[in-house]
Amino acid sequence: MKNPDLIQQMRERAEAVQAIVSIIGTMKDACQYAVAITKKQGGRTVVAAGLKTKEQDYLKNECESSGLRLLEFPLRPHANEIHTSLTIVDGGVAETGTLVLDSTSEDVRIATMLAETHVAVLPALKIKPDTTALENELNAVLKADVPSYTAFITGASRTADIERVLAIGVHGPQELHILIMEENKA
């Protein structure tokens, strides 16, 4: 499957599980998106993981000029105040609209587990058609002789435990925004 088709499928499948998907060009767009969504939702804090120093600085400026706080690692002391978390994920699975995120770092876990809104940047070239295409890569991580915590994330957290009625946002993030980054469009 060609990349545009994969992007399209990724988008459709992710939207089918209530993720909010956009296409962006650069990390700047991602930072602006994270700030805008935080403001719109009345949140006050943003946290980011996996950003380069320059990007992190840019985000900090954006936050400050919007009256938001960019939280710093370690995140445990901030556990109760994380509104938006901005992460760059390691891969996507188009077949199911799934994000792949190495969550071995505790701060990455906290950021993506406790945030009200998770904004995930998915580089378009990292979208794989299905789990089979991902098998070798993931196996390399799992078989390495180091501890690891790897996550597939598909949509926001959900439950149907009360009367089988689907409710979004239980213990994990209430919203998942996926920003598919097509860098050549920058």
């Binding site: 071995t104 505790e106 501890p147 996550a151 597939f152 598909t154 949509g155 959900r158």
Partner: peptide
């Protein structure tokens, strides 16, 4: 569901502050 919201692989003693 085609897949659940989360599928997680945990290997060994990971970082824990």
């Amino acid at each position: 569901q085609a897949i659940t919201s989360y599928v997680t692989w945990i290997k060994g003693a990971v970082e824990c502050a």
